[in-house]
Design a protein around this nucleic acid. Structure first.
Lengths: 235, 235
DNA sequence: GGTATAGTTTGACTGCGATCAACAATTTAT
DNA sequence: ATAAATTGTTGATCGCAGTCAAACTATACC
């Protein structure tokens, strides 16, 4: 309780009044650790934030000192529960923004990530809430990623990896798990966006292409693209 | 052409890639000098930016070194033509955002300034353009301020100060020149927003109140509020 | 098990935008 | 015209987030 206690306390509760850099790092670490991988390593983080590895290293120490991340030297970083709350708030804003940009501002689904990124740390809470209302409390962004609630909770869904299904499975495309603009544009142009009904027709062995069928077309997709797709199986 | 030439050149053309602080100062100086007053003085600027006078003084020197402002020591600052271009771009974004927040996001007219301020330095150019399209290339923000074009030009209008008109003059309210949320709320609640038809009924002498008449009501306004209002006179 | 290599951290330093305290210039009042 | 009050600038210093070069693990290979 010496002299620089003030903003630590302010921050504890509202995930909002943190600076851009902090929010950006926490967001990156969240995304890197959300997918199975237990810890995010320095180089990965540095690349995703867009700074040198040494820069990231320094910043990670700061974030650890402030209680946002759990750091094991020479190993990697994870978010503390507090850090995760903050990150989820940024993720919420990002995904709400993506949907807003798509639905209201009529941007293409492969463009929204960039613009959402520019805005995610600047919008006011009222703006966040207003988007949520306007969009009717949505659950997913245009790519199908889940939108966390303000308390950090995530909706429960039945997404499964398309490439893990057996041939003949039918389902609804729910998520295309990438923010790579080119891939999104390609898939979008083929009509492969969340909501579309599809059936798995063929899976070539040894990482080969897969064949899927929609109402209109049959598509042949390379494995790396196919691996981005998650579906809800329908009986 | 030594070693730190890069961003000076980048900035010269696109008013966009400047940091928040610079944009904020230029915006403030623009607003302070737009209304007749030839130069903006340090204290005024400091107050409007929200920093100490000494902080503003230092920053002003930096802005002068970089060619955005014309500085006369102990006198005050004005924008250079280059600085004015940049400022007008921020003003454009701010006012487009205000209208967007009002029309699309359904914020009240007294709320939009705050939220627009949070966003004005972060939006992408595409977002700016999209707002402009969506709103049909508007000319005024919700309070009636003019929206500069991307080249910095301002539409030509016939706004005149209400308090300078003689009793009996009828006109359309075009501009309420303040961003004070309380005053705006008060006037808005009375229906005194741009677009409304009104007639000047009485002007009390010695800075006393004025009386105006609209379709529905007769309003008595203190001089300071009345002075915010600009009208287009109709014959 | 010792060494090359990839990944990580440290140290010295930079730029930016602030602060406060002290000082200087300008303006106003007597 | 000088003193007092106001306004503006400077100097020292801070915190933040970055850089590069050098030093330091951790691990994988032979």
């Amino acid at each position: 309780m010496s002299d620089q206690t003030q903003d630590v306390h302010a921050n504890q509760n509202d995930a909002v009044s943190l600076n851009d850099a902090t929010l950006h790092y926490l967001d990156v670490i969240y995304r890197l650790t959300a997918t199975g991988t237990e810890v995010a390593n320095t180089t990965e983080i540095a690349e995703n934030v867009g700074v040198s590895a040494s820069g990231a290293s320094v910043m990670l120490r700061r974030l650890a000192e402030r209680g946002w991340v759990q750091l094991t030297r020479y190993k990697g970083a994870t978010l503390t529960p507090m850090g995760k709350r903050v990150a989820l708030r940024t993720v919420r804003r990002h995904r709400l923004l993506e949907l807003f940009l798509h639905e209201v501002m009529k941007f293409e689904w492969h463009e929204v990530d960039t613009h959402a990124h520019a805005l995610e740390t600047s919008i006011t809470e009222a703006f966040e809430d207003r988007m949520d209302e306007l969009l009717n409390h949505p659950i997913r962004c245009p790519h199908g990623h889940l939108i966390p609630a303000k308390d950090g909770s995530l909706p429960i869904v039945k997404d499964v990896r398309l490439v893990d299904q057996c041939v003949g499975t039918a389902g609804i495309l729910r998520l295309v798990d990438t923010d790579n603009s080119d891939w999104l544009k390609y898939l979008g142009d083929q009509g492969l966006k969340p909501g579309v009904n599809l059936k798995l027709k063929e899976v070539a062995p040894y990482g080969g292409p897969i064949t899927i069928e929609t109402q209109q077309h049959t598509h042949n997709l390379g494995r790396s693209l196919a691996e981005l797709m998650f579906v809800e199986v329908v009986a």
